[in-house]
Design a protein around this nucleic acid. Sequence first.
DNA 1: GCCGTTTTCGGCCCGACTGTTTTCAGTCG
Length: 624
Amino acid sequence: MSNLEIAELLKKVAAAYQILGENRFKIIAYERAADSIEHLTSEVKDVWDEGKLGEVPGIGEAITKHLDELFRIGRVSHFEAVMKKVPQGVFPLLLVPGIGPKKAYKLVTDLNLKGNEKVVVGQLAAAAKAHKIAPLEGFGEKSEQDMLAAIETYKKGAIKENRMELPLADKIAQDVIAYIKRLGPSVVERIDVLGSLRRQVSTIGDIDIAVATKKPDSVVSHFVTYPHQKLIEKGPTGASLLLHSGRQVDVRVQEPGSYGAMLQYFTGSKNHNIKLRELALSKGLSLNEYGIKVVGKTQNSKLKTQNYNSKLKIYQFRTEESFYAAIGLPWIPPELREDKGEIEAARNIFYRKFPGKPNGLPKLVELSDMKGDLHVHTNYNLEPSHDLGVDPLASYLDRAVEFDYEYVGISDHNPSTTKHTEIQIVAIMKRRKEYYEHKYSSWIQKVSKASSPARTNVHLFIMCEVDILPDGKLALPDAAFEYVDAVVVSIHSSFTQPKAAMTKRVLRALGSHPKVRIFGHPTGRLLMKREGVELEWGEIFALCKERDIALEINAYPQRLDLPDAIVYDARKAGLRFCIDTDSHAASQMDMMRYGVSVARRGWGEKDDIMNSLEYTQFRDWLIK
DNA sequence: GCCGTTTTCGGCCCGACTGTTTTCAGTCG
């Protein structure tokens, strides 16, 4: 069962409890558990396998027991008993936007809806068309019409599933920002991308944008003239549009004096915000998007009187830093705001007395720390097993200069093993090495003439991305290793082997030659297209550590592989990483920033990243 | 049902929006 399916199951249980009038905190607990699982970047099943279910926030003793039953025998008798107590027709209706448990229950019982998902939703649509909904208590003309529209939305397929990769989300956000900025700096004092895009989650649902302005009405009215398919909602604090592309954009406005609180509120994540507000509450402070209210007895030494707005009875904050500081915390980087222990770590900066806890927040790696890219593909045709790049070596070197890198590693795919004999492959690799050495020295000569010497110290590593064959053998004969400095090994076939076989396969490959230095895109996932392979990570980590092999954080936006949650675990296990772009065109080398974001979301520091090392240190690590 | 570094009992985030309402409930993020 996938995370999404388990999350949906828990949501159904929560809905059933709500209809049954259960304790509302129990309902909230189930919803939080569902939410937590839905947003988990590793599979719950794997977490359960490792016996770490209790470490997932929102999952305690009781739900652990239920999930244990689910994974062992495929069903949970308690869940089934609870869900049996409500009419089955309510569950499909929950998928229609705007219908929650209460409304669903009322509709199903009053209209006697029953059957499978399609049938029930169809019956509801028919009832709306026949004006049978408006007369029901709590409903009316408007809600009847809205319901028909909502059913249409539902039929178009769950918009929720329609997530996008980071570059597209960036593009949409920048277009909207440019449009809003047309109002000029006197109206748009500040504008920022917030939400999951600011946290750099690997896929993005909605785009969230906040504006600091003294003229909120002007900003909202201007924003809703942006070309769109549907106005979802509009109010004094903001508006939401569904664009023609099917993407939703939410804009929130805030006066500059409270903008810090808005940045914090709208960046999320939801669970981070809840945890933060609970912490604040324990100090007698209530947080919202306008600022901080004093609700209890407390010595508010952190609150400064000059921030107090007596009209709103609230302390205001222009910056996020001052907002966090008022709760007694340092500023927490957005990539960490997932309720994975960052608040506890942040508190520890001020409460170092507690041993055994993470000692403060990590000092996260930054894009400017990167000194090279070890996984790019040129257009040199070595008749590879997979695709070639489109640009020549010189283009990649030029870009390396642009980024101030000290080195580049060319990791073309190995020559095809089906089209060539081993002897041919060795010959190809030898020829390739000579070719690159020649091209590299011509490039050096050209650049030395054109620019100051300081700009020419980009070093070249001649590498290769070698397939891990289904049996764990490498797709490069031993004799060919003489012609490479190091190799990246990756899986490009047979992605669905069972965990044990896959683990054995990878272990064999990683241990098969000293020049194996990087495990490329380790899960092989393609976002929204292909799940990652199943591996016994503990065993992989152990061998990588023993042989000092780096795990790749592949920055290509469709991959972002390792996933951030595994980066987090691997880092705890003491492993180190290479962040590479896997560029097949020189223009793609600026995707590095997405890889850095993944590292940051995995709590990665500069010291965890091999290719943040300067050239000689890196060379000494890479070349064995 | 979850959770905790003054608590293992007694709390539990916060507000906007919408529609159907004379004061609020439901839904959403």
